[in-house]
Amino acid sequence: MSEYRVEMKVNGRRVAEAVEARTSLGDFLRLKLGYTGVHMGCEHGVCGACTIMVDGRAVRSCLMLAVQAEGSEVLTVEGLADAQDALHPAQDAMRKAHGLQCGFCTPGVVMTLASLCADRRCDEQSMVAAMSGHICRCTGYQGIRRAITMLAAEVGSAGSDT
């Protein structure tokens, strides 16, 4: 198997590793770097559980190869909040709204919401539309909808001030 050396920044830290060309970015983050908050739900781009951010944009890490992330800034759910025990507003809204049950889909959901917040596309409609690319088998999406409403009110209004 052909091996390549990749360098990228993951959650603010530089990493340099050898990877097989066929290794997905998701597997690389989970297996090589230990970021097990990256969840593999389908490995074919439908469920959204593996969503992370690459250079600030939400990406399905099962559909991207590790070698394609060469030189990128990668953010996983572990690195989303500013501090060790803090929560990002998207995480906080999900917690307050009972937006999760088993938590397997949750890291992906949170990363998509966070990327929309960063993008100032955090009106309710855009967030609900983006959520149709995430499958949650547990919650029936009720708490996720409430979290989106809270987040839109909170971050949306904060965003319009600046």
């Binding site: 097990t36 908050g37 759910v77 572990e78 989303l80 995480q91 999900m94 890291p107």
Partner: peptide
């Protein structure tokens, strides 16, 4: 939730 939301499940 604090655990599961931060990828520490």
């Amino acid at each position: 939730d604090a655990r599961l939301l931060t990828g520490r499940g």
